[in-house]
Design a protein around this nucleic acid. Structure first.
Lengths: 145, 145
DNA sequence: TATTGTTATACTCTATAACTATA
DNA sequence: TATAGTTATAGAGTATAACAATA
């Protein structure tokens, strides 16, 4: 079968775009991180929220949303899910605000999380290497390719 | 009201992570690009697919999937939607494969697309600037912050 | 047997709108 | 009036599983 099964020498005009590499690199990073934290039973968004609570005990969910660019409407189910798994507890600050804190279970998860995040960062730097600035595309491409 | 409405001096441990900035930067880029191409009635994924067809007339959708990391199962509705809007036509290559081509309408869309993508790239570089390699975090952060 | 395309389905993330209640 | 939280809903994007038809 010599019908040219070799790589179809496909032309990809997106290869020259920084935005394309940025998207692919971010996706690759999220896939790697997602696999690492999978055993913890947290989504990537829950992961970042938990880390923010760990660093800011008593924080309000509206503050988390502002810091991480998550809309109020999307914060509600995230906090509810974390509370349902007993990772987060709420304490009324006033009639409408609640201070969020990690439970022991939540603290344990964060400890594991830090390890996986560090591994993910190491994975990132391993792929990105240290390069000059004009090498931005090459760096980002190296992450997913 | 002097209850300290100033920024809550919130601690964000994610700020030190390359992965965090990568995710935020990619999201910011996609928001900018999404707004630009919105008038064309294409999603971001459809946009990249159309560009690949434009550069590779007669390409099979399985090849597009491989190039852009889109699963076969997800390619089907994308191509169907592009065909439904008469941007793409199919031509049987053999009993199971189809060669994809742009229609006149599809070509017109791609011409507009190229302009918006170039604008998005300019926007990206305007924010990222040209910087050294250790400035990777700063560069990426500058895109979304 | 492996590949191409398809359908069905589910989950994550994001978005807007509208509502309650509290400040 | 503005804010904090909630609910409902929708649209992207991605994932797996299973199937038919063809190579």
């Amino acid at each position: 079968m010599l019908d040219d099964d070799s790589p179809p020498t496909l032309s990809n005009p997106l290869e020259g775009l920084v935005g394309y590499h940025l998207r692919r690199a971010a996706n690759a990073m999220l896939v790697d991180l997602g696999r690492r934290i999978e055993p913890l039973g947290l989504t990537l968004t829950e992961m970042s929220v938990v880390q923010l609570i760990a660093a800011n005990p008593g924080i309000r969910q509206s503050e988390i949303g502002k810091a991480l660019a998550i809309k109020r409407a999307n914060m509600a189910p995230i906090i509810a899910a974390l509370e349902a798994r007993s990772h987060v507890s709420r304490m009324a600050l006033d009639g409408r605000s609640q201070g969020l804190n990690l439970t022991d279970s939540g603290e344990a998860v964060v400890r594991q999380l830090r390890i996986h995040v560090a591994e993910n960062e190491a994975w990132l730097m391993r792929h990105a290497g240290s390069g000059a600035e004009a090498r931005l595309i090459a760096q980002l491409r190296a992450i997913w390719a």
